[in-house]
Simulated assay, not measured.
Amino acid sequence: MNLWLRCQPRSIVVSEGREYWRSTIEVGSIQGAVGIDSPYKTMCGAIDEFIDVEYGEGVLEKAFAAETATEEIEAEGHAYICWLSKEGVVFEFQYGENGPEKGGEVTLGQFKLAVQTYLQFLRDPERKSIEVPFPE
């Protein structure tokens, strides 16, 4: 199955005098977006929580540091914590029905590609949609 990663604009939110782009980031195939239980769906949900480029760049720096780290590196967001290691990335959703829930493991390479693509999208003042091939 050939997968793609897509970032596209959804809406603009203004909070405390600051403008935030709400967007959609998703992984899909020729058959459409990957299902709700997919680890890719969890990854995209976590990345979509990045509030701005600066925060995303900090997460990306941690992802590159995880390549050589001997222990997991934590990247905390609003609703998710990302646990980064050279073996992969696991996401912990903070507001599950029974408390925090871990899941959605992806490779470190997949995560870095998704974050880099999302940052490229956020840096574009016109917020043009981006679609790139995504490794399985």
Results as ranks from 00 to 15, higher is better:
residue 50 F to Y: 15
residue 16 E to D: 15
residue 73 I to W: 08
residue 114 A to I: 01
residue 61 E to N: 13
residue 20 Y to F: 14
residue 97 E to V: 06
residue 69 A to L: 07
residue 124 D to A: 14
residue 92 E to K: 13
residue 55 Y to L: 08
residue 80 Y to P: 04
residue 25 I to N: 05
residue 76 E to S: 15
residue 86 K to E: 00
residue 51 I to T: 06
residue 99 G to Y: 00
residue 78 H to I: 14
residue 110 Q to F: 11
residue 112 K to I: 05
residue 68 T to C: 08
residue 73 I to V: 13
residue 23 S to P: 03
residue 12 I to C: 02
residue 52 D to S: 12
residue 116 Q to T: 10
residue 20 Y to V: 02
residue 64 F to H: 15
residue 83 W to P: 03
residue 21 W to P: 11
residue 88 G to T: 05
residue 96 G to S: 02
residue 33 A to V: 13
residue 48 D to P: 02
residue 113 L to N: 01
residue 80 Y to D: 07
residue 40 Y to G: 13
residue 14 V to I: 10
residue 66 A to G: 08
residue 87 E to H: 00
residue 17 G to M: 03
residue 93 F to T: 01
residue 77 G to Y: 02
residue 46 A to Y: 05
residue 16 E to K: 12
residue 39 P to R: 09
residue 41 K to D: 09
residue 55 Y to D: 09
residue 134 F to V: 05
residue 69 A to K: 07
residue 5 L to V: 05
residue 76 E to M: 10
residue 39 P to L: 08
residue 71 E to V: 11
residue 69 A to T: 12
residue 107 T to H: 13
residue 4 W to F: 04
residue 95 Y to F: 12
residue 88 G to A: 06
residue 110 Q to N: 06
residue 60 L to I: 09
residue 8 Q to N: 03
residue 105 E to A: 15
residue 10 R to P: 00
residue 96 G to M: 05
residue 47 I to P: 04
